[in-house]
Design a protein around this nucleic acid. Structure first.
Lengths: 228, 228
DNA sequence: CATACATAGATTGCATTCAATATTGACAGG
DNA sequence: CCTGTCAATATTGAATGCAATCTATGTATG
């Protein structure tokens, strides 16, 4: 492959929708980091990445800056960039904050959620279950992201939602390392069902409780795996 | 003034501490935006900023990208950058999230805070009071930032702290527009004292409650001002 | 007179070049 | 043999130049 980029060229579609180059680089790099194709701590020279992606240093560096602001890469002046190491401490702290945000969202979501919204979430959950034996865990991952982020988005608080998504993203790598655990997998599916049940009943307090429980269990599983 | 930048040149001090150019630009621009010297919504061409700061377009653009990730500027492809408008909705939502994070921090802080920490916060609070009649509100502002951010930092959860600081930063502009209200000013000073009292007693639940109360009142004052 | 289109100017996106800094390796001194 | 210093190389930081895109003005047409 001469370039990793596979850009959508608007061609005739609604023109002027061409995305900046660095956005594509960001997306590609983010995925590679989340999927641990770039191992945590690994240092990369700009030259290597330039060759890999087939772009010049300017958009590449813009991409690195963005990923740095997301916490996925670290940049030290004059010393290059590297993939952020996975810190168990940081993972643990992130789970704690996410749990609090989910708890906050519970009542807000129940106040606003429509039947259509619930149906959408059910579909996502069911599709996730159908991927039970999936050989490729990437689609399961995407669905899990969609489930949780869609849920929080229903709170109607865009700042909450954006903050949540940002922190959620920082956990993806750690989750990825762990999601081959079949026990935790089915446990998680059950918890998703409980969560949906509370949502259908519009019981905000109960939804908060179950979200936190789910968060707590997931954190436990991820951290156990990382430590063991 | 030929350039707005006033860089610290390491000279002989611990060498190699030279910060990248764009960091200085970021700091300057951030302050100008927070202090509303650049009015919300205002569009700026890169050329203008290049002349103002005396740097080339490359570091300037890097600076804009960073501020965009902080939510202070908006960049649209091929259409340039502008100061993010202040949205009352967004301000309100941000206060809500901050309140939740402070509530989360309360018990954590009380579990870990030392007498030295408390003394440091007291000093900040007292200094803030001494700036009561300050003609320049900038130092009051800095102290208020220090008070709240130092408090949350004592939680020991670095992710919580970073998230809090980021959101706090997005509110600074709105606060700045409001802080000439003398009534709210003295009310706020009293609330700070109450907060310190709960902290001295290491009463986590009470600290959470008072932090949320303070947050709620501040939000009310800011939003009232913005609406009126 | 209003609207659509075309062209010129302005502005941003990307590539390349030049400068500053860090890293590596060799060599001299202890 | 180890350690500290200095030079050579590699790498990042900043500036400049070129190409692509948008915006604004003026003209033609209904």
């Amino acid at each position: 492959m001469t370039t990793l980029l596979n850009r959508r060229d608007p061609g005739q579609g609604s023109a002027s929708e061409r995305s900046p180059l660095h956005d594509d680089v960001v997306d590609q790099l983010r995925q590679m980091i989340i999927r641990c194709e770039l191992v945590p701590g690994e240092r990369f020279t700009e030259q290597k990445l330039v060759e890999k992606f087939g772009v010049s240093r300017t958009p590449l560096r813009e991409a690195l800056k963005i990923l740095a602001s997301e916490g996925l890469v670290e940049m030290r002046p004059h010393r290059g960039s590297s993939v952020s190491p996975i810190s168990i401490e940081e993972i643990s702290e992130t789970f704690a904050v996410l749990g609090t945000l989910e708890e906050m969202a519970g009542p807000l979501v129940c106040d606003r959620v429509s039947n259509v919204d619930i149906a959408r979430l059910e579909r996502i959950k069911d599709e996730m279950s159908s991927k039970r034996d999936a050989t490729d865990r990437n689609s399961y991952f995407e669905l899990n992201v969609a489930f949780h982020q869609s849920m929080i988005a229903l709170s109607g608080n865009a700042v909450l939602s954006a903050t949540y998504n940002q922190l959620f993203g920082k956990l993806q790598r750690a989750r990825y390392l762990v999601n081959d655990d079949q026990n935790r997998w089915s446990e998680s599916a059950r918890e998703h069902s409980w969560i949906m049940e509370a949502l259908r009943q519009r019981d905000g307090a109960e939804l908060s409780k179950r979200l936190r429980e789910h968060n707590s269990r997931t954190a436990q599983a991820v951290l156990d795996k990382l430590r063991g």
